[in-house]
Design a binder for these strands. Structure first.
Lengths: 200, 200
DNA sequence: CATAAGTCGAACAGGGTTGTTCGACTACCT
DNA sequence: AGGTAGTCGAACAACCCTGTTCGACTTATG
């Protein structure tokens, strides 16, 4: 149990069997999908979705809470990557915002109720804290837009950020429910948010 | 068991004891408050909040689901009353919308997560169906605004309604969480929504 | 190929929920 | 003042969930 040196150079036996590593990613994928569909998804649901036994989940994640934490972290990391790929710090603020909106909303749509799941099972401040990395990008963009005279200054920055965030989610939900045509969402969001944010 | 005529003119023994009627309103009040605070509020929670025994709840409501249904119906009825009191069909659309917003948001704030509770425990289409009475007022107002050239016509009406609805809720949540000053909410919502809806 | 690592199903304990039943008790109503 | 409608607490059954343990089985890996 404490060989410490096995050839591969691993310290404390952290290297798992290829088998197990494959299952871990399968579990995370299944959990992501399950939580996105049903915020109350149980370990049984997720195990079934992953095609594995429930016990196996507990072999890799000590608790449902921890699994959810992991899923949330990975998802937010991907969001951050996508936001940064839209280079929100470059070009005219309005155009940067439009770029961000269009690249972002499919993600929110795909991850559906995962956020609700997190808010239900994890402490509220933790959820908020984990979000503030990607959130900062939006906030920075809004602040820049205000400084450059493109966005309105008569409302609190945080409220404008909340507006962006909320409407992104709402549009994603509407699209998921089939009440909004997928192709139209980008344009609709862009028009709505630019109108809500632009100065004058 | 089938007296049918008892003097008071009641048909099938529907008249309850004054005692019981008092408790029924207490239960509904407690349930409303409990659901508004915690969408997962249990019958035990509600009974405790009402100062009654859990069994008594079941004496008046056959199930938690039915109780939630009742609470939802009463709440929506009150919303409808408040919306109508703002006479959304009169005056310039922008002003009518502003009136409606200002009279509406404290309600949404007060009822907090009741909507979430309903969405969790009741079939989605039922929740939606119950909302379409008050929703119709908003939709009518938006449509009128478009017809009179005050509101934009380049986006679907349903999306504009969703925008109003969503941002009202978001602002109410922010206020409840202390991230938005209560006195400021009305003005902030009015400015944001008018900017999002107005034509051009 | 042998062994250690991983999987799996069944079964368990512990907690929570919804509804129901019982008998004793209490408030109302006439 | 007495009969009845209503309340209440305790206890029950049924269900679902999380986490854990067991022993038997399968698979990777060296």
């Amino acid at each position: 149990m404490a060989h410490t040196t096995d050839r591969g150079g691993r310290k404390a036996g952290t290297r798992k069997r290829a088998d197990a590593e494959r299952n871990i990613v399968a579990i995370i994928a299944a959990a992501t999908e399950s939580f996105a569909r049903d915020p109350d998804a149980s370990m049984t649901d997720i195990a079934k979705a992953a095609g594995l036994g429930r016990v196996t989940l507990y072999a890799h994640f000590p608790s449902r809470e921890q699994l959810l934490r992991t899923v949330l972290a990975e998802t937010i990391a991907e969001s951050t990557r996508i936001i940064e790929a839209a280079s929100p710090a470059e070009g005219p603020p309005a155009e940067a915002l439009a770029r961000m909106i269009r690249s972002c909303w499919p993600l929110l749509s795909r991850f559906g109720s995962l956020h609700a799941a997190a808010q239900r099972a994890l402490p509220a401040d933790e959820v908020r804290r984990r979000h503030d990395r990607p959130m900062a990008h939006v906030e920075r963009l809004v602040a820049r837009g205000r400084a450059e005279g493109a966005f309105r200054t008569d409302l609190p920055v945080e409220w404008l950020v909340t507006t962006v965030y909320t409407l992104l989610h709402a549009a994603a939900d509407e699209a998921a429910a089939g009440r909004l045509a997928t192709e139209a969402v980008g344009e609709i969001l862009e028009k709505t948010l630019l109108a809500a944010l632009k100065s004058e």
